[in-house]
């Protein structure tokens, strides 16, 4: 490592002249400052424009509390469901070969490229009063759209691929040798999953879950279509922010928005920590050379 560094220093040709370097760095930092730092700072400054008390006042509103509660409930349902799906999808796609696998992977990714508004619309068309099973639902007095189940469904849709797409490449890279060894040695499927697969994918899992959670709590477009905007009942935190903002209660809107901005910051911190831990684990695994060829050998023969 130190060897290549001296080689590089000797060959000035593979770095830019200092003035180019500084110009590029300055432009990049100004861009980051304008597009990332300022918007983030603006959320908190606007929230505290009239002091801490005014900001806290907005958070104490019963409507704000019910929005927070609904957001937590939604995430508490959507994230575990997508977690179970993510593990199942990754297990079937990464550990086996079957026809149509590439197509299935594309379908799993599909919700990422669908506009959130369209995501909300499809549930209105399914469950709305004029929808497919809307009349039946009405006859049985079940409300899905413009009620909490619709919000949960729309959230599940927009966060659908998050965990699966983290786990699929990770489990593919790890192969099946360790699991096969466990099965051959007499472990059950569940034991193999808990003691062999799960420790290998834990960081990818945490990573997927926090990103999924951030999106689930922050989703706006899809939830806005299916919510019906009933204050204190079907408003999530982002929808509550919108209502306050449109009512020109700027401080209150930004105070509630700061909650979401804090959530984003916490998400970024956890994400960073997970990345460091993952890299450290991988380095530790790479430092154990005798294990690897043994594990890889049966597959090659």
């Amino acid at each position: 490592m130190s060897n290549t560094r001296t080689v590089r220093r000797a060959q000035a040709g593979t770095t830019e002249p200092t003035w180019v370097k500084w110009t590029l760095l300055t432009i990049a930092l100004i861009f980051i400052f304008l597009f990332l730092v300022l918007p983030l700072a603006a959320v908190f400054t606007e929230a505290l424009r009239k002091g801490w008390d005014a900001a806290f006042e907005a958070l104490k509103e019963p409507d704000a509390w019910s929005a927070i509660r609904l957001t937590l409930i939604t995430a508490a349902i959507a994230v575990p469901l997508n977690l179970v799906f993510g593990i199942a999808a990754a297990w079937s796609i990464a550990k086996y070969e079957f026809r149509g696998k590439a197509f299935l992977t594309t379908l799993v990714d599909l919700p990422f490229s669908v506009s959130p508004v369209v995501a909300g619309l499809i549930y209105v068309l399914m469950f709305g009063a004029q929808g497919w099973i809307g009349p039946w639902l009405q006859a049985h007095d079940i409300k899905i759209v413009f009620a909490i189940p619709g919000i949960v469904l729309a959230t599940i849709f927009v966060t659908f691929p998050f965990i699966a797409r983290e786990l699929i490449p990770l489990m593919q890279a790890q192969g099946t040798e360790e699991e096969q060894a466990a099965i051959v040695l007499g472990a059950t499927g569940w034991q193999t999953f808990w003691h062999v697969t799960l420790p290998n994918i834990k960081w990818g899992l945490v990573y997927g879950v926090i990103l999924c959670n951030a999106r689930a709590m922050g989703e706006f477009g899809a939830v806005s279509v299916v919510s019906g905007h009933i204050r204190g009942q079907t408003n999530t935190i982002p929808l509550h922010v919108e209502i306050l903002y449109n009512e020109y209660q700027s401080v209150a809107a930004f105070a509630v928005a700061s909650l979401l901005a804090l959530l984003a910051l916490v998400t970024l911190v956890i994400k960073q920590v997970v990345e460091w831990r993952f890299e450290r684990d991988q380095k530790a695994a790479a430092a154990l050379p005798p294990e690897r060829p043994m594990a890889a050998a049966p597959a090659a023969t």
Partner: peptide, 18 residues
């Protein structure tokens, strides 16, 4: 780490902040 902010920050918050 900050580069991922647009992924983590809810879009409505980004909208009112910008």
């Amino acid at each position: 780490a900050l580069v991922d902010l647009p992924f983590a920050l809810p879009t409505a918050v980004a909208g009112i902040s910008l």
